[in-house]
Design a protein around this nucleic acid. Structure first.
Lengths: 230, 230
DNA sequence: CTAATGCTTCGTTTATGATCGAAGTATGAA
DNA sequence: TTCATACTTCGATCATAAACGAAGCATTAG
């Protein structure tokens, strides 16, 4: 990182795509491990480690050890609001850019975000569930409520969520999608739905990659189940 | 500039030292020409041109043609406030950094900023004039007023400012110093004072460079004339 | 007109830093 | 203890973009 005025370091830290992806992922407020961040950014763990070191050195993130995990969060609210300011300005300036996002278009379309579905299809599913009142968003929170109709909808799918309610893990959470900067569904329900798609044979995970590949009929079923509202 | 989320472009634009210097210079609100910005950043005109193109492409600056000059300004208030936010966060995080500033320490100490003195000595002169009430700062303006005592002080130096008052060019302006992010004296008085130092033999300009080299006795005289308040 | 200034474009060099493979450390599980 | 997981460090490769020289375009001055 070169010399220059104070803002140079800050800018160059945010200016790297891998780091920007990590920071965007952390904007959800969740504490994420290095491995999760690596998956989000689509890079290896070694590279991630180097990036995390720089981000921490720059005071943008904090880490807290817990067992053999290291959980990373944004350093403080100031960092979050700076990122939000930048996102707002970028959107205003129409820097929608070609939005190539991850390495490949396939990654952009559908990928795992740790254990749930992200990418265009993930965002579509989230929007669809929300617009039909199956999921209810909370103010200022990334927690979501599954409505009664939502419960019915899930039950009709053949997904049993009764064991999920026992777990301490939240059922529904929204997770920021870095390629679209829109939310997709996380939480144990998000995981269960992705598992459901695998189980139904609609989609399968590409070995060793984050890409989730839908079969032709699988995507058709998905589209019928989670239609985009016009 | 690589792919990534929206903030990536913004960050990488600000993350380059040369561009950060230009943006910082433009924070003064003044419209500056490409040549001036090149001088501020310490790079050639060609490189500056490329940087300005990227900054404009990113929506951070605007240009307005006027004769054979092109004046550049920050695109809007949003950009200014983003930069301010970043400066604030950087300062808070203690990223004072080694502050090597320009290429060489000599440049950091004293250099020309277009036609007036910048660098540590420039800032010192500015502070000294201000703290002794010779210059009066205005609210929200980069314009300065030369007080009556200030007029006497300048007259005692043997600098005749009467012709300067005729000019349409402002007598006193503050100009942000990119290596210190503090103001130094611009305007025709700033030019006249630098000329005065040359004339007195206190300092000379290094040929082909922006460095202003003070002789030992010259710097001594300068220090006596513009003491740092403790 | 010519000359000079202000800036841009082109082409090349060079340096920085992002990336990954391989190996190492630390913590917890069996 | 031994293995596995989570992460870091080292070393090398490679791609990007910053920088400048040289030449080109545009505008104004004389």
């Amino acid at each position: 990182m070169k010399e220059g005025p104070d803002i140079t370091l800050l800018g160059s830290l945010i200016g790297d795509p891998a780091r920007a992806n990590m920071l965007t992922a952390l904007m959800s407020g969740k504490a994420l491990t290095a491995s999760e961040l690596a998956a989000e950014a689509g890079i290896t763990l070694q590279t991630t480690s180097a990036h995390l070191g720089k981000l921490e050195g720059g005071g943008l993130i904090r880490q807290r050890k817990q067992g053999r995990h290291r959980y990373f969060t944004l350093a403080d609210e100031d960092v979050g609001s700076l990122l939000e300011t930048m996102m707002g300005l970028a959107a205003k300036k129409g820097h929608t850019r070609t939005r190539t996002g991850p390495k490949a278009p396939a990654l952009r379309k559908a990928r795992v975000c740790y254990n749930h579905l992200a990418g265009e299809l993930g965002v579509q599913m989230y929007d669809s569930l929300l617009s039909r009142g199956f999921l209810l968003a909370q103010e200022d929170e990334d927690m979501l409520i599954l409505s009664d109709q939502g419960r019915d909808f899930i039950a009709d799918l053949g997904v049993d969520i009764s064991p999920l309610n026992q777990s301490r893990r939240p059922l529904c959470k929204s997770c920021l999608d870095w390629s679209a900067r829109r939310s997709h569904l996380a939480g144990s329900l998000g995981t269960a739905l992705l598992e459901h798609f695998y189980h139904k044979g609609w989609a399968k995970r590409i070995e060793g990659q984050r890409i989730v590949e839908f079969s032709r009929p699988g995507e058709f079923s998905f589209q019928k189940l989670f239609p985009l509202q016009t």
